[in-house]
Simulated scan of single mutants.
Amino acid sequence: MPLTPLDIHNKEFARSFRGYDEDDVNEFLDQVIKDYEAVIRENKELQNQILALQERLDHFSNIEETLSKTIIVAQEAADEVKNNAKKEAQLVLKEAEKNADRIINESLTRSRKVSMETEELKKQASIYRTRFRTLLEAQLELLQDEGWKTLDHDKVLELEK
């Protein structure tokens, strides 16, 4: 067990003939006691500082560990957001391609339908023109027929009666 200042103060030495001067020894012991008390106080203060610094070190170590974990979590979250964004972009792209294909197919269907309707109208117009021409030609033949001359004369006679 280490010496305390009280142990030094209470220490008694045996007396011998021609021993040390008691006042010098006591004076020296008083100086040792003062210095020893100062060393003990300084040691206590240093131990307190060490404890405080150790607490701060532990605190900063905890902060560092928390920051490291936070950075890892943030990186993982960023990676997840990035992956989700890629997936969403792919879905949007697929949906756009699907819509584009649908629109193209609908347009092709409409185009075919309009083309068929146009062809049908052309056929009907051609039939109409042919029938109309036939009708007109038949009417012209009737007008050019000699029977009109007699028909006109018969009408005039009828009107006169």
Rank of each mutant, 00 (worst) to 15 (best):
T70D: 05
K94Y: 04
E42D: 14
N84M: 02
L53H: 07
I50C: 11
N84Y: 03
D23G: 06
K94I: 07
R41E: 10
N84A: 12
V92M: 14
G19K: 10
E76P: 03
R41Q: 15
D58T: 00
N48G: 08
H59R: 01
A52V: 03
N26T: 12
I50Y: 02
A14W: 08
L91A: 13
N26A: 06
L53W: 00
F17C: 05
E22D: 12
R56A: 08
Q31Y: 01
A85F: 12
A78S: 13
D58W: 00
I71M: 01
V81Q: 06
E65P: 01
D23H: 06
I50T: 06
L67G: 00
E27W: 06
N62P: 11
A89D: 13
A77S: 07
G19A: 15
E80Y: 12
E37Y: 07
L46V: 05
E37P: 15
I33W: 01
H59L: 01
E27L: 08
D24K: 05
E42S: 14
L67Q: 01
F28H: 07
Y20K: 15
E80M: 13
I40W: 00
V25H: 09
N48A: 06
Y36D: 02
K86F: 10
R56I: 05
Q75C: 10
E95R: 13
R56C: 08
